[in-house]
């Protein structure tokens, strides 16, 4: 069978589908001061997975606000700098109007994902931390 670390090189999703892969990628991103990219990506996935039924409205609103405050609002943050202004306005609008939709972070997540696929992920695959691991 293919060792996991070779699978990690197939695609970003293969990497993010494996606990050890996530851990190593996060360590790399921490060195580059951009671990928030990964945390935000997972926060968006987690938010989308919340079922309207098994989670109170207040909790979803509180979580949406927390994600917005931590990653989108701070214009100096790495995540905020990589999200398009229109996408940020859309999220801000959803939070202010309290129109909390499971898909409200989808576009922002896609933008961060594209950025990781084009940038941090290929750099990770050539990094010492990955090469030493393999």
């Amino acid at each position: 069978p293919t060792p996991p670390y070779l699978k990690w090189a197939e695609s970003l999703h293969s990497l993010l589908d494996d606990q050890d892969g996530i851990h190593l990628f996060r360590t790399f991103l921490q060195q580059e001061n951009c671990a928030d990219l990964l945390d935000f990506w997972f926060a968006c996935s987690g938010f989308r997975k919340l079922e309207p039924n098994d989670s109170k409205v207040e909790k979803r609103l509180k979580l949406a606000k927390a994600i917005y405050k931590k990653y989108v609002l701070d214009s100096n943050g790495i995540v905020s700098r990589q999200i398009k202004p229109a996408t940020k306005s859309f999220i801000k609008d959803c939070v202010l109007r309290q129109q909390i939709d499971p898909a409200m972070f989808d576009q922002a997540q896609m933008e961060i994902q594209s950025m990781m696929e084009d940038n941090t992920y290929p750099v990770f695959l050539k990094s010492d931390i990955y090469l030493e691991y393999t």
Partner: peptide
């Protein structure tokens, strides 16, 4: 009452893959 950070952390963890 959960703090915002706890809520965020719980959300991030819920999206991570389970152990192989």
């Amino acid at each position: 009452i959960d703090s915002e950070d706890d809520l965020l952390q719980e959300c991030i963890s819920s999206a991570m893959p389970k152990k192989r």
